[in-house]
């Protein structure tokens, strides 16, 4: 028995050593349901802004990367239990999250959240829909409006279309293409609200080495303008850039 275990351990060690020589394998966790940040494209692959950013960061930091999808609900517990090493899922940097995980510097500027409704005079203190457990849901609850929570961002928009909710409150960049393609049915209402400190990579607090590598890579992308180019490609020319 002991011999057997020893053999397993040896294989394990040599496996790890092999990985070391090829550069470290880093697993990137994303949601895959938040276009244009991240989504599953029609070929069944993870695509979107974060896919391109993630691949570029891995190339610059000389890491071998693998993509995984995970439900939004359990995305932080699964990071902490080590099922992947980095969260790259349009996650806003907030104080609460920062207490349990670490964030890289942001790779997307502090995003505006906005209300979208069917009419321009919609009552934003009425029933407002949002995705459950997002910073937007918390904001709506505190704003005094009646919060209607849905499991997916998609459903929260559908609720406005069918009249369940007066307005939906979500990331402006997520809503923009939906509004643009609705043929005037949907429109932005009220002033955009700044929430969170931009979107960053989520990491375990103990992974300081990985964090440094990725921070350097993000900085280099910011410096040579390639990050801005990607933002413009996915979010249009009017989006805030670095």
């Amino acid at each position: 028995m002991k011999k057997l275990l020893l053999a397993t351990a040896l294989i394990a060690v040599s496996g790890a050593a092999l990985a070391e020589s090829h550069g470290q394998t880093v697993r990137l966790g994303t949601e895959g349901a938040y276009p244009p940040f991240n989504f599953i494209n029609d070929a069944g692959e993870i695509a979107g802004f974060e896919r391109e950013v993630g691949d570029e960061l891995c190339a610059r930091a000389e890491l071998t990367c693998e993509w995984v999808t995970n439900e939004w609900d359990s995305i932080i517990p699964n990071l902490q239990s080590g099922n992947y090493d980095v969260i790259i899922a349009g996650m806003s940097i907030t104080k609460e999250r920062d207490e349990v995980i670490d964030f890289s510097q942001n790779y997307f500027p502090p995003a505006a959240s906005a209300y979208v409704a069917l009419t321009a005079d919609a009552d934003l203190k009425g029933t407002v829909s949002a995705q459950v457990s997002t910073i937007q849901a918390g904001y709506v609850a505190e704003s005094g409006a009646t919060l209607l929570e849905f499991a997916t961002p998609d459903e929260s928009v559908a609720a406005v279309r069918n009249g369940e909710a007066v307005a939906v409150f979500a990331d402006k960049d997520f809503l923009a293409p939906i509004v643009a393609e609705s043929n005037g049915e949907l429109m932005f209402v009220g002033e955009p609200v700044q929430l969170g400190g931009g979107v960053g990579l989520g990491l375990r607090e103990s992974d300081t080495e990985l964090k440094d590598k990725l921070n350097a890579a993000i900085q280099s992308m910011k410096d040579d303008g390639s990050l801005n180019a990607l933002i413009e490609k996915h979010f249009g020319p009017e989006t805030a850039k670095f």
């Binding site: 609900d73 359990s74 932080i76 517990p77 902490q80 609460e96 999250r97 349990v100 995980i101 829909s129 459950v132 457990s133 609850a141 009646t146 919060l147 209607l148 929570e149 849905f150 459903e155 609720a159 369940e164």
Partner: peptide, 24 residues
């Protein structure tokens, strides 16, 4: 069904806490 005014059942609140404390 969507939760209205954050009034939900036992699992809804458990989910809320799991999300806020990051500890399921």
């Amino acid at each position: 069904f969507p939760a209205f005014r954050q009034m939900g059942d036992a699992l809804y609140y458990a989910n809320y806490f799991a999300d806020k404390t990051f500890n399921p």
